[in-house]
Amino acid sequence: MTNINKNNEKVVVTNLHKYFDHIEVLTGIDATIYEGEVVCVIGPSGSGKSTFLRCLNKLEDATDGTIIIDGFDITDKKIDINKVRENIGMVFQQFNLFANMNVLKNIMMAPVSLKKMTKEEAEKKAMELLERVGLADKAHAFPGELSGGQQQRVAIARALAMNPDIMLFDEPTSALDPEMVGEVLDVMKELAAEGMTMIVVTHEMGFAREVADRVLFMADGVIMEQGTPEELFGNPQNPRTQDFLSKVL
């Protein structure tokens, strides 16, 4: 992709370690992600991909190391994490739409509650976003009435309603029936084309190859290898990468 701004570091991760009890899940991650960049994180299950992503908006606390988002060190306890999170959208594997609200309320809730928009502005924005993900007719449906693919598109719209400048995707298509994967990936492709900074943990190698500016291959809690999709898929250097790709491609 073309619109990467190398002068603006959106995410800078230095020597990130994460323990769950005594198990070290992340064993020292360094990564810099620039404005407008689309980074896909691939790797076998248990390699720490999701944990890494969840550390970036502090859903998991880093055990050691620093994570700087938009210039804010979120490992610093004095930083108001809620403010930082307003600029980081997140999309989950299980969608996590608020079950007690209809689609419209799901999207409007955060901007209104956090006083980013009035009710009218939020509703207008929500309808625009629903239009964009092709679900304007579902505004008054409840999450339980939607298919997985529809729910995930709403979840993307909900994250976008806060006008984030970074979007995190945690295996957004892994819980979907195969025929619904495409509709979600299409929305994500569109978002990438518009220049959104995106970090995507995924098993969709086709998506990574087509859309990513850079692919990170993780195993055993570290980034084993990274490069453009051409480099990583076309000519992987690390034996672990070669082994993994030979199994999934």
């Binding site: 859903l59 996590n96 955060a110 979840a155």
Partner: peptide, 21 residues
């Protein structure tokens, strides 16, 4: 489900707002 509060927190809502809403 834990994902419900994670989604709310990821949008920037405080713990209290997440609880109430």
């Amino acid at each position: 489900p834990k994902g419900q509060s994670e989604a709310a927190r990821s949008l920037g809502l405080s713990k209290a707002q997440t609880m109430w809403k």
